[in-house]
Amino acid sequence: MPEKTNRNTPLLDIRNLSRHFGGLKAVDGVSFQVNEGEIVGLIGPNGAGKTTLFNLISGFLKPTAGEIYFRGLPIHGKRPNAIARLGVGRTFQIVKPFGELSVRDNVLAGMGHNIYPSLQAFLHVYHTPTAIARANDILENVGLAAYADARADTLPIGLQRRLEIARALALSPILLLLDESAAGLTHQEAEDLAALIRDLRDRGITILLVEHNMRFAMNLCERIVVLNQGRILAEGTPEEIQTNPAVIEAYLGHSGVVRREA
């Protein structure tokens, strides 16, 4: 494990990051930081570049320009598996469970991150009592304990989103990237999820989340970064964002009719 990050170094430092697809500037010169222990929300209209930004941070896309530092270490250009092993866990907006595996084995797959790079992975059996106990703990934590033996692809979508979180937690992440985890959840389910995310933060995991559900993001995040057309439109506390004229315009257009999000 690298030594504890200097207080002054942000946990995640994004500098002038761009990703262009042909003529489309999906992410265009974005800079912001995430500090240890924060819950930061990334919001913006459809096509604002939120998921592209997530894919850049987690290594699934290479930046066209710019840098990403995690705990002071450059991670732009690293493969996703290497970034994951540094302690960046992520979920996918369109869930990607290991469908034919049990829910518990999905979590176990995340627990192997330290052994996969070594040939020891061919020697050691993964169903050990300690590993299973830890996987069960994680499942208990996200409220999936009752489904541990079910095939992952038989879970309803709301629970598959939780499984995404459980699998990312199996990495013992320092930074957790949540891509629209509240999408399609009922009000109560979203409340439960918010409580879970706060609980994770209280246990030392820093959270960066992409969210479409405005109320969810405003209630949960301490700081919000608003993206629009690949650029940062505004950054600040939820209160500041809610009253920011540029944000209101981007979301509602010129009419100025302010409508509360359901």
């Binding site: 699934f60 595996l101 790079p117």
Partner: peptide
């Protein structure tokens, strides 16, 4: 034996979803 090892789990993971396998630290 292979199917019971971490390597076997990594193979199954990449079969099921290559992106998700990378996201949990498997070099696909």
């Amino acid at each position: 034996y292979l199917s019971r090892t971490w390597a076997g789990l990594a193979l199954t993971a990449l079969r099921e979803d290559e992106d998700a396998a990378e996201a949990v630290g498997v070099s696909v």
